[in-house]
Design a protein around this nucleic acid. Structure first.
Lengths: 112, 112
DNA sequence: CAAATATACCTATTTTTCTTATGCATATAA
DNA sequence: TTATATGCATAAGAAAAATAGGTATATTTG
């Protein structure tokens, strides 16, 4: 990614959607998955991810289970009931955003 | 728009693309156009727009012409040569972003 | 005609969000 | 053995936008 700050504001959506698909994930795993999906273009920084995970947990959208993998700790996050509801909202907002941007990028083509 | 902060980071792209399409526009006109295109969903705040216009001008991407409309002043902005180059970059970044988000939202469907 | 709304510009302060820079610790590869 | 990968975390700073204010003219509406 060159200087792309378009991802600003989309981190919560990305995390919630990944958790919806994968059931449960730990932080480091999320960073790998996002890198993979974006073909190496988008790399979540840990300084952004961990505070976001804590925030979503504090909001009651995620729950945590700590587990040991060998000698290393992992914190597995998964969606709560409210988290599952919130994914739906976030995804529809994202689709709306994309639709509006497509309308901007391709004026004259009716996407609505 | 409910609470949609996905638009964060896309303001410069929006402004540059609108100017590419319209030739020249003044600030207030840009706010109306964006509102119209997004079906009222996305409203640019003036506290974000005017500093952005000044920044893009300072970067040499925009030029300004002041004109009077009756007794009211308008500052018409248009793309410079560098501005026209930058629109191309911004639009390809936006398409890349959308592609990655589509891959995220619809895992399994190859968009690449 | 008065009052509200629309047009048209602006900036200062605060908040949100992310980057950068660290730090700690274990496991694996070179 | 030294660098890289895994795995967590936070603090300080930067960037972008929201909020909240300001000035002034034009038009609509009651």
């Amino acid at each position: 990614m060159k200087s792309n700050q378009l991802y600003k504001g989309s981190l919560a959506t990305i995390v919630l959607k990944l958790l919806e698909d994968h059931g449960r994930m730990y932080g480091y795993q999320i960073t790998r998955e996002v890198k993979k999906i974006s073909g190496g273009e988008f790399k979540i920084t840990e300084g952004a991810l961990y505070p976001m995970l804590h925030k979503l947990e504090a909001e009651g959208l995620l729950t945590v289970e700590m587990e040991m993998s060998g000698n290393r700790m992992r914190k597995y996050y998964s969606l709560t009931r409210n988290g599952k509801k919130e994914v739906v909202n976030k995804l529809s907002e994202m689709q709306e955003f994309i639709k509006n941007m497509q309308n901007l990028l391709n004026p004259g083509i009716e996407t609505a």
